[in-house]
């Protein structure tokens, strides 16, 4: 036992390897900043993002003046990013928009990992289900994801829940395929055979022996799902089929701004920069995690 254990203790822990990766560091850093912005939005020089003040329609970025709230009170306000054509403060809308993007990204990742993980486990371990389940997934994958999401939102009606569901459904087949292929290779491992020989019930083998060994690739996949979900949510809003336009999402701000893009390009550019930075951060986190967590990728990398 001692001989087998020693190399493990000498190996640098996975976590410290992850923490030393620059891609992960930058990704986590930017995301932490965005989470802080999402939480602290009310105290960052913002006003109610839904309130329209006709007196400040289309003021330019950097304008400093007064903003009239719903109750008629006028407060001193810096329009860092100007105001839109309804007189809503863009700085406030962009900061509050962070909340929607992060929530959608997180929940779509959770929903599609859970459902895709479950169906992948079933397809990989319960052979009688495999054929039919994978044919359904092939069919779902044949429908371009954004189109399916657009159709689902328009059929279900737009709310935060339906948007999350509509974006998650096209992601499920990819997760299912990944988990299924992992399960197919893990189930051949000696420790699974041993558990089968000991008469361990199937559900216990799946949850205790197979699932833990599929966690690392699942986390990597989850970050990529998250990045794509944030993008798709903003696309839905931008096309006008996502969350109702009074809700401050980056896509909604851009949809409103595109009408007069020629005169006031900043209405589109500011939320666009936030969106791109967020997706980039999540993608960098995912790339870093894949490089450090995925043993298959590592082997290939070190072989060169």
């Amino acid at each position: 036992m001692a001989i087998e254990a020693s190399p493990v203790s000498q190996r640098p822990s996975v976590l410290s390897k992850v923490a030393r990766n620059w891609s992960v560091r930058i990704g986590v850093g930017v995301l932490a900043l965005l989470v802080a912005v999402a939480i602290c939005a009310p105290w960052m020089g913002t006003v109610d993002p839904a309130v329209m003040d006709g007196a400040v329609m289309n003021v330019l970025p950097g304008h400093s003046g007064e903003f009239t709230l719903l109750d008629g009170r006028a407060v001193k306000h810096e329009f860092w990013m100007g105001a839109d054509s309804f007189g809503r403060d863009i700085w406030s809308r962009v900061l509050y928009g962070t909340r929607i993007s992060l929530i959608v990204g997180l929940f779509v990742a959770l929903v599609s990992l859970t459902l895709g993980g479950l169906s992948g486990l079933c397809a990989g371990y319960l052979r009688w289900l495999d054929g039919i389940l994978m044919r359904v997934m092939d069919g779902l994958m044949a429908i371009p994801g954004i189109l399916l999401a657009i159709a689902l939102v328009s059929a279900l009606g737009a709310s935060l829940t339906t948007v999350v569901v509509a974006i998650a459904i096209p992601e499920i087949p990819r997760v299912t395929r990944l988990v299924r292929s992992l399960v197919l290779s893990i189930r051949e491992e000696p420790y699974v055979e041993a558990a089968v020989a000991l008469g361990t019930p199937t559900w216990k083998i799946m949850l205790r022996h197979i699932l833990p060994n599929a966690i690392a690739p699942l986390i990597v996949q989850g970050t990529f799902v998250c990045a794509s979900a944030i993008l798709v949510e903003s696309i839905l809003s931008f096309l006008g089929v996502g969350l109702p336009s009074e809700i401050p999402t980056w896509g909604n701000i851009m949809a409103e701004g595109r009408v007069q893009f020629n005169q006031y390009p900043h209405n589109v550019l500011y939320p666009g920069i936030f969106l791109a930075a967020t997706v980039l951060a999540v993608n960098m986190l995912g790339d870093g995690l894949r490089d450090t967590l995925d043993p298959k990728f590592n082997k290939r990398g070190s072989g060169k």
Binding site: M254, L269, N283
Partner: peptide
């Protein structure tokens, strides 16, 4: 990585601009 992250419509508007 950048290409995967920059939304099509943001890029479109930057190019038009």
């Amino acid at each position: 990585v950048l290409g995967f992250s920059i939304p099509v419509f943001v890029l479109g508007y930057i190019l038009i601009w």
